[in-house]
């Protein structure tokens, strides 16, 4: 892996962010809007504080952490779509750039995106709803890291599907992550799900993070078991999905799809 090639791709996207309103809206406007809407719902639910203890901390904390996963996924998929939209894939893949360097660059970009979005959401939650996400404590760090990796996994999966199936699959860039939301147990505990779906949900690293978060917010200590499962599953899926990306990339080269994607 050559750092200068990863740097080139990152710089290309930072040049874009500098003057693209839709890209800036992704960082500042949409996350802020999300927070405002969910914030008002939470304020309303606070009226039933007796029946729903800890509702504010659960909802806003879950929303901010869900956005970490969502933006990490978007950071990868939208970067790939940008190359399709600007008909730049040929320039990139006819250069010495390796697919692994491409992934490394998009993963770095997604971390940048998550950092920016998190700053916006954490600040807005604090100023508008007096909510301090740092009350989760040190567990917040492994939670965030795991959600970023889960976002990468979904992002690379989506990118592989777009590369293989072309323009018709572009809609997955925005929709794929929501396929995982019901089984991530973001806003409700896992025991709400039917038994058979609980088994599926436990295979999702994000579920362990959100269950762990609720445990911490209910006064529990660092959820070591949940974190262990999240790390293990993330590593397994990440290695698998990187393999799938390389395999899809080679299939696309064989079928001549790499030069036609987006047409």
């Amino acid at each position: 892996m050559k750092i200068h090639r990863i740097q080139a791709l990152i710089t290309r996207h930072l040049f874009l962010y500098k003057r693209s309103l839709p890209r800036l809206m992704e960082i500042f406007y949409w996350p802020f809007l999300d927070l405002v809407v969910w914030g008002f719902i939470t304020v309303y639910l606070m009226k039933f504080q007796g029946q729903l203890p800890g509702v504010v901390t659960f909802f806003l904390g879950a929303l901010i952490l869900w956005d970490v996963l969502f933006r990490a996924q978007q950071g990868i998929t939208i970067s790939f779509l940008e190359e399709i939209w600007s008909r730049n894939l040929m320039n990139l893949f006819a250069s010495p750039l390796k697919p692994s360097e491409f992934l490394a660059a998009t993963m770095t970009l997604s971390v940048f995106k998550v950092a920016m979005v998190s700053c916006v959401m954490v600040a807005a939650a604090y100023f508008f709803y007096s909510y301090n996400v740092f009350m989760i404590g040190l567990s917040l760090i492994p939670f965030v890291v795991n959600l970023i990796v889960t976002g990468w996994i979904i992002g690379v999966l989506t990118t592989s599907l777009i590369m293989r199936f072309g323009q018709e699959a572009e809609v997955l860039a925005w929709g794929m992550v929501f396929l995982f939301q019901p089984i991530s147990c973001v806003f409700y505990p896992i025991d709400i799900l039917p038994k058979w779906l609980q088994a599926v949900a436990w295979a999702n690293p994000a579920t362990h993070v959100f269950e762990g978060m609720r445990g911490v917010l209910s006064g529990g200590s660092l959820p070591v078991a949940h974190l262990g499962w999240a790390v293990g599953l993330n590593l397994l899926y990440l290695v698998t999905i990187i393999g799938v990306f390389h395999w899809t990339f080679n299939i696309c080269k064989e079928k001549g799809l790499l030069v036609r994607v987006g047409e």
């Binding site: 200068h4 791709l9 290309r12 040049f15 874009l16 730049n88 040929m90």
Partner: peptide, 24 residues
Amino acid sequence: STYISMPYSLTAEENLWVTAKLYG
């Protein structure tokens, strides 16, 4: 090639800069 393009939201010079970096 006449049939390729370069990222639209970058200036001509920025595009050249990215290419130069890509090739080290």
